[in-house]
């Protein structure tokens, strides 16, 4: 299970060009968006949609659900696990 979280961190860093970060800089349940998190924004949210589709074959059908799914690495991983189960 933890492999998925580490895999996601590496994919996030690559997809979003977060070249100054390493996976260990990203806390599993820390917020990804906003000033208190990694400072990601709405374009990054679109990148997450691409990431989920490309790497996991998962589409996010409800844009309103995206805010909750994309909150943290933990919430992303939980959504992937639930969808794939």
């Amino acid at each position: 299970m933890s492999n998925l979280r580490e895999e996601l961190k590496a994919q996030i860093i690559e997809q979003l060009n977060l070249e100054d970060l390493t996976p260990s800089d990203i806390v599993n349940d820390g917020p990804l968006f906003g000033d208190e998190g990694l400072g990601l924004d709405s374009i990054d949210a679109l990148e997450f949609i691409v990431l989920l589709d490309t790497h996991y074959g998962i589409k996010v059908p409800d844009p309103n659900a995206a805010r909750e799914i994309f909150h943290s690495v933990e919430s992303l991983a939980s959504y992937i696990e639930k969808t794939k189960a």
């Binding site: 997809q15 374009i43 679109l46 990148e47 949609i49 691409v50 589709d53 490309t54 074959g57 589409k59």
Partner: peptide, 9 residues
């Protein structure tokens, strides 16, 4: 592209 979505940036 292997998926329906493309990177927006």
């Amino acid at each position: 592209a292997q998926s329906d979505t493309l990177s927006p940036t």
